[in-house]
């Protein structure tokens, strides 16, 4: 009995501790959420119409240090912490802007839950990676060296990275607006359903384009000695929304799901 009480107590403690680590913000009247951070973001779909930020580990924040800062307020050079969690959350019309004020060293990534129909912009700064699962509306992602991993998305998606690799598995493709992925030195690896209607534009300036789809590629006229654009343009299942996959030095992979 005593052990049960202790376990319950401990369980409650961890629950409270977790709850304290969680930040929530209502999304009524919000159509788009923008994140600016230097660390990694892991975005999944939540059940409520709220923004939920959790799981931000503070590796430098041990217990004794926490006590030291009790009753004090954190100051940041790049914004005003109005969440108590090192984020600045502001509203601009129908857009909610979440700015991570902590350094990437201190906050090694955080988790976000959002309703699936909300537009998102994720800027993972210099070093952050981005993971998105299940968001069905428009996604815009920008990283520098971070990898981008997208699952169960529909598009439209506009994703760019400098040296990161882009991996995406689409459930179905939204035909309203184009999908465009570009990386300078990373690979682009995209899986789509074999019956997807799309206009494909696949290009790797130095690398190679690979696919298991059977489509005919219009050969460029002759051998262009200068500035061969090396772009592969074709229609998939009689054409549809534009899917543009580009890598300057990396490879492009287009797979049947």
């Amino acid at each position: 009995m005593k052990t049960l009480k202790i376990t319950l107590f401990l369980f409650l403690c961890t629950f409270i501790a977790q709850a304290q680590e969680t930040y929530k913000h209502s999304l009524s009247g919000i159509k788009k959420v923008k994140f600016y951070t230097d660390t990694s973001i892991d975005l999944t779909v939540g059940s409520s119409n709220e923004l939920v930020i959790s799981g931000s580990k503070n590796s430098y924040q041990n217990k004794s240090r926490k006590e030291k800062s009790k009753g004090l307020k954190a100051l940041y050079s790049n914004g005003n912490d109005n969440t108590g969690k090192g984020f600045e959350v502001t509203k601009d019309g129908g857009t909610l802007i979440v700015k991570d004020l902590e350094s990437f060293m201190k906050r090694s990534g955080f988790k976000v839950q959002l309703p699936k129909g909300i537009d998102v912009y994720l800027n993972a700064g210099n070093l952050g990676h981005v993971k998105v699962d299940g968001i069905t509306s428009e996604i815009e992602i920008k990283t520098n060296i971070g990898d981008i991993d997208l699952v169960n998305i529909n598009g439209p998606a506009t994703v760019s990275t400098n040296t990161g690799t882009i991996t995406a598995v689409f459930s179905t493709i939204n035909q309203s607006n184009p999908i465009s992925f570009s990386t300078a030195t990373g690979d682009v690896d995209v899986s789509i359903a074999s019956n997807t209607k799309a206009n494909l534009s696949l290009k790797s300036t130095i690398g190679t384009v690979y696919t298991d789809f059977n489509f005919k590629v219009k050969k460029s006229k002759g051998l262009s000695p200068v500035g061969n654009p090396r772009k592969i343009s074709t229609e998939l299942n009689n054409g549809g929304v534009l899917i543009s996959l580009k890598s300057t030095t990396g490879n492009v992979y287009l797979r049947k799901k």
Partner: peptide, 12 residues
Amino acid sequence: NSSPSTRIKAVN
């Protein structure tokens, strides 16, 4: 437009 995919659509 504020949506980048819409801007790309316009450009295309």
